[in-house]
Amino acid sequence: MPDSLADLSRQLQKFANDREWQQFHSPKNLASALIVEAGELLEHFQWMTEEQSRALPQEKLEAVAAEVSDVLLYLVQLTNALGIDPIAAAQAKLSLNELKYPVDRARGSSKKYDEN
C-alpha cells in the first residue's frame, strides 16, 4: 500500500504500464481527464448550501472521496508525464502565496492579492 506520493506515483506507473496505457497518457489527455473528474467532484456539491457541504452524510462523503481519489490520481499521472515534482511545486507556490497574501493584509479577507 503506498504511503507517500512517490509510492503512489510508482504504483500508478506500474498500473498503466501493465495495461500498456502510456500511449494514452499524454499531458493533454491527462489534464483533460483531470478536469472531467474535478467536474464530477463538483457535481456532488451542486445546489448545496454552505452548511450542507460541510456536513455530508456518510454515503455522500464516500462518493466525494472516490472523486477526490480520481482527481489525485490524474494529477499525479500528469506530474509524472511532465516531470514535475508536485511537492516541490506546491511548496514553491505556497512560498509565493505567503508573499502575495501577508497575514496582516489577508486575515479574514477573501479578496485577491491585487484587489484593495
Rank of each mutant, 00 (worst) to 15 (best):
Glu67Phe: 05
Leu94Gly: 00
Leu73Lys: 12
Tyr101Glu: 02
Asp70Ser: 07
Ala66Tyr: 05
Leu96Glu: 10
Ala81Thr: 03
Leu75His: 06
Val68Ile: 15
Val64Cys: 05
Ala65Gly: 15
Val103His: 07
Val76Met: 07
Val76Gln: 04
Pro102Asn: 09
Ala90Arg: 08
Ala88Ser: 07
Leu75Glu: 04
Arg105Ser: 10
Ile87Arg: 12
Val103Asn: 01
Ala90Met: 05
Lys111Cys: 13
Lys112Thr: 15
Arg105Leu: 08
Ala65Gln: 15
Leu78Glu: 04
Asp114Phe: 14
Ile87Cys: 04
Tyr74Pro: 02
Asp85Ala: 04
Leu82Gln: 14
Ile87Trp: 03
Pro86Lys: 03
Leu73Glu: 11
Lys100Phe: 00
Val68Gly: 00
Ala89Asp: 04
Leu94Arg: 11
Leu78Ser: 12
Glu67Trp: 08
Ser95Cys: 00
Val71Gln: 07
Val68Leu: 14
Ala66Glu: 13
Gly83Ser: 08
Glu115Gln: 15
Pro102Gln: 02
Val71Ile: 13
Ala66Leu: 07
Leu99Gly: 11
Ala65Cys: 15
Leu99Val: 07
Leu61Asn: 11
Thr79Cys: 15
Asp85Gly: 00
Tyr101Thr: 01
Asp114Ser: 15
Ala63Ile: 01
Tyr101Gly: 02
Ser110Cys: 09
Asn97Thr: 06
Val103Trp: 06
Ser69Gly: 10
Val68Arg: 11
Leu73Phe: 13
Glu98Asn: 05
Tyr113Glu: 15
Val68Lys: 08
Ala88His: 08
Leu94Val: 10
Gln91Gly: 00
Ser95His: 08
Ser110His: 12
Asp104His: 12
Leu61Asp: 14
Tyr101Pro: 02
Leu94Ser: 06
Glu98Pro: 00
Leu82Gly: 12
Val64Gly: 05
Leu73Trp: 09
Ala89Glu: 07
Glu98Ile: 00
Ile87Lys: 13
Ala89Ser: 07
Asp70Trp: 02
Tyr101Cys: 02
Asp85Glu: 03
Ala63Cys: 09
Thr79Tyr: 13
Pro102Trp: 04
Gly108Glu: 03
Pro102Lys: 04
Ala63Arg: 03
Val71Leu: 06
Asn80Val: 14
Val103Gly: 01
Leu73Val: 09
Tyr113Leu: 04
Ala89His: 08
Gln77Gly: 12
Asp85Trp: 01
Asp85Ser: 03
Tyr74His: 09
Asp70Ile: 01
Leu72Asn: 02
Asn80Arg: 15
Ala66Ile: 03
Ala90Pro: 02
Asp114Lys: 14
Leu78Ala: 13
Gly108Gln: 03
Tyr101Asp: 02
Leu61Phe: 11
Gln91Leu: 08
Leu73Gln: 12
Leu72Ile: 11
Lys93Pro: 05
Asn80His: 13
Ser95Phe: 04
Glu98Met: 04
Lys111Arg: 15
Tyr113Cys: 10
Val64Ser: 05
Leu75Gln: 07
Asp70Asn: 09
Ala89Phe: 03
Ala90Asn: 10
Ser109Asn: 11
Ala65Asn: 15
Ala106Phe: 03
Ser110Val: 14
Gln77Ala: 14
